[in-house]
């Protein structure tokens, strides 16, 4: 299992478009990807779930990735986050 935290730097937080792109990235892997904020955790492959978290700038989100390709998935998500959010 892979776990890492990320602090959102984007002014608008995780709004619709980056949420959609994040789903796209997560869906490329078979591992389960969870994204959590303040103890709430949702499936990172579901756009409504991510948008429902209402993540804003300066808030910390935690990713938990588990499965065969967790190494690659974790890597891809980390670089997506730092490039886009």
């Amino acid at each position: 299992m892979k776990t890492f935290e990320y602090i959102i730097k984007d002014e608008q937080g995780i709004h619709a478009r980056p949420a959609g792109e994040l789903v796209k990235v997560a869906k490329q892997y078979t591992s389960t990807v969870m994204i959590g904020k303040d103890g709430n955790s949702v499936d990172c492959k579901k756009i409504f779930g991510i948008m429902g978290l209402g993540v804003k700038k300066d808030q910390t989100v935690t990713f938990t990735i588990e499965g065969e390709d967790e190494e690659q998935a974790s890597h891809a998500i980390q670089s997506f986050m730092s490039e886009n959010l």
């Binding site: 478009r17 959609g20 579901k46």
Partner: peptide
Amino acid sequence: AAIFEIHKMMLEDDDY
């Protein structure tokens, strides 16, 4: 245009 891609994802969303 990205909004329509997002709409597609919403349509495919498992929770929905």
